[in-house]
Design a protein around this nucleic acid. Structure first.
Lengths: 248, 248
DNA sequence: GCCGATTTGTCCGTATGTATC
DNA sequence: CGATACATACGGACAAATCGG
């Protein structure tokens, strides 16, 4: 499963931390110990540890050791990860999820679309709107744009199942990076037509651009979430961007 | 300024990318070239490149090179970075920002607070509520909890200026990691008392835990944002968590 | 289709610096 | 002061992917 050594060490440590074999606030075995345990070089261990630090599981303290800062969900009501995808939250809440394609079209990017999505003007695109339901309740309205020349042969049929499965398994394209923007916006007429909003007049909007392994933009998506089903987690580390912590 | 070699290389490349000396979708000079340019080892260059990849500036392609994926703000209306802090958005929009302390108290964490914040039950805390205004318009309600035994000697006076400046410059404590959770919640009575919400009945809520360099939790904060002034940016990379991309 | 050059990916060993106790 | 632990940096080796001839 694990392609690389550092990845298997990463996975092993991650599991042990999640299983609380290494508990919150305790110090992991030293790098030198881990080197012997996994029979590898210092760099390899450090790389695994660096990745654990990135996802907010551990924190290295100079001259002391590597401290576990992962907290199990129930204890502090904090979960680690990115956006909870539709499927994830569905399985976590043991709900049945369905997808309904409400619009499937082909368009050409004009200036307005280009500016918004990042595609070049004139690019041929698939334009798809999908409604995501949990236990029959419409929770997310997804608006997708796919580059027709990269994501070829898309159909309404595929869109109703899983576009990403199609991209990865059928087209054999690897996904590598995604830029996201989160805002809170007022509901539009289209929103209230499809989503069960109760009396909330706002929703959480996630706009994202996704790049493939060749660094080419192939997707722009706007997901409009009903507030009560939206939750986003993140861990920020100092070096990423110093200004992050410069709250007044 | 830059403590380490890889950091200065990182900063240099970052500036050049931002200045579009290296343009969107072009390939950076190869690692071997950069090694000669910066007179350093391959690992050092690679480390700088890895950090640029983390913030969504570049993307390495095996057998090809390192492609620039940074897009200047005006071109695609995407900004890179973390949460725009109060001060940042203020300066960016050329608005005058002020902070008003509406509550300053000392409490002891009971079971409810402990579960919510991650502090141990019985921990002595500062409990602060602050209102952030832009050009006189109240935009954010901040609710802070600080561990009294770590962040010592806090006063209302300090809270009205900058608590982080106090922590870093006076207490000489270094901040290193922060876990955040974003949700959209219905406005409460307290919210509508302080914030100018218009007719929106929801707001963006960012809950965060912050750890110092010793891996100790010293702050829990809930920031309640008026929708129109809230925007969060993020870039996700494949290895971080595979499930991120498994959208159905 | 193959080969070789280029480029990134993984891994190792070692040396030196810095912080903690 | 010395032992321990993480941080930075160097140099080398081989693998995997890509591209052009």
């Amino acid at each position: 499963m694990a392609k690389s050594k550092y990845e298997s060490i990463y996975r092993d440590l991650k599991e042990r931390i999640e299983g609380e074999e290494y508990e919150y606030q305790t110090i992991l075995p030293s790098e030198n110990t881990l080197i012997k345990t996994y029979d590898c070089s210092r760099n390899t261990v450090r790389r695994a540890l660096a990745q654990l630090a990135e996802i907010g599981y551990v924190q290295a303290i100079n001259g002391v050791g590597v401290r576990v800062v992962y907290q199990p969900v129930d204890k502090a009501s904090f979960v680690i990860g990115g956006i909870e995808t539709f499927k994830e939250s569905a399985t976590r809440n043991k709900l049945k999820s369905t997808t309904e394609v409400v619009l499937f079209a082909e368009i050409v990017a004009d200036a307005r679309v280009a500016k918004r999505s990042g595609f070049k003007e004139g690019t041929e695109l698939y334009y798809i709107q999908r409604l995501r339901k949990l236990d029959g309740k419409p929770c997310i309205l997804d608006i997708n744009l796919f580059d027709k020349s990269i994501v070829t042969g898309l159909t309404k049929e595929i869109a109703s199942k899983s576009i990403y499965e199609y991209i990865e398994n059928e087209l054999n394209m690897e996904i590598s990076m995604s830029k996201r923007k989160m805002t809170v916006e007022r509901v539009t007429q289209v929103d209230s037509m499809y989503l069960s909003l109760g009396d909330s007049n706002c929703l959480a909007v996630v706009s994202s651009q996704t790049f493939n392994k060749k660094g080419l933009l192939f997707e722009y998506t706007q997901s409009r979430h009903v507030p009560e089903y939206f939750c986003f987690m993140d861990t920020a580390v100092r070096h990423k961007d110093v200004d992050l912590f410069k709250q007044v």
